[in-house]
Amino acid sequence: MQPFKFIEHTADIIIRSYGHSLEELFTNSAAGMQQYIFGELRNSRHGEPKTFEVNCQASSCDLLLADWLSEILYLNSTEYVRIFEFSFKILNENEVTSSGLAHKAQAINEIKAVTLHGLEVVKRNNTWTATVTYDI
């Protein structure tokens, strides 16, 4: 199973990600977004990693994912870091308590925001799939 793929959109970008569990789905969704912003991971491992907390609550799983990705985007934009590894203390369809390991990194692409347009998180045959449209 591939972790994520980029889907063409005239003006923006869609990332579809997959996972056998919610943890894997969230991790792969973030990895797709980080790869779009910073490029291949091997190009952006510099210095001692720092830990950041990323916690959210929402009324549904898709809104939770969108909020969580928005938090990561905020850290990318204000701390100039790429988050490359996540661990989850709590993760259910309405709450996530997580921490991420991050390196300083130089962005190569800009994501302005995570949008709610066409946002979807579904589980079929034991596989979770998320579809997220980003404004770029």
Binding site: S59, S70, S77, A113, V114, T115, D135
Partner: peptide, 17 residues
């Protein structure tokens, strides 16, 4: 720039809730 991006993000979240 980022100030506008985050302002819109904040209010889309608030209004969707």
């Amino acid at each position: 720039r980022g100030l506008g991006h985050q302002t819109c993000t904040d209010y889309v979240k608030l209004m969707s809730q």
